[in-house]
């Protein structure tokens, strides 16, 4: 399968990467090789087979809908961000 430049640009957009032209080109070659490799799976007959999304044996693990005391408090979490103000994370103006 041939991967076009516009396909790579689309994937970069979906992934939220601001890639340079040269990066688009080099990663494009890698992605094409990887996609060609994973396309080998087309050979396998999976007619009538149910998909498996997880291998955990249990389903519907319930817990009470209660607010638990958290180990990390607001101050500790805000300390991780670059800028905060009045207990809020600060970002550049959106509108």
């Amino acid at each position: 399968m041939k991967i076009k430049r516009e396909d790579i640009l689309h994937l970069a957009k979906l992934s939220n990467f601001s890639m340079s032209d040269s990066e688009i080109e080099s990663i494009g070659n890698d992605l094409e090789n990887i996609i060609n490799y994973i396309s080998e799976l087309n050979e396998l007959d999976t007619e009538g087979v149910e998909p498996t999304y997880q291998v955990f044996e249990m389903e519907n693990i319930w817990r009470n809908d209660e607010i638990k005391e958290q180990e990390a408090d607001r101050e500790a979490l805000l300390a991780l961000t670059k800028e905060s103000m009045q207990d809020q994370i600060k970002v550049p103006k959106v509108l």
């Binding site: 799976l41 087309n42 396998l44 087979v49 998909p51 498996t52």
Partner: peptide, 10 residues
């Protein structure tokens, strides 16, 4: 397709 193949592997 991959998730179906996963079933076959299991």
């Amino acid at each position: 397709k991959a998730q179906k193949a996963r079933t076959k592997i299991i």
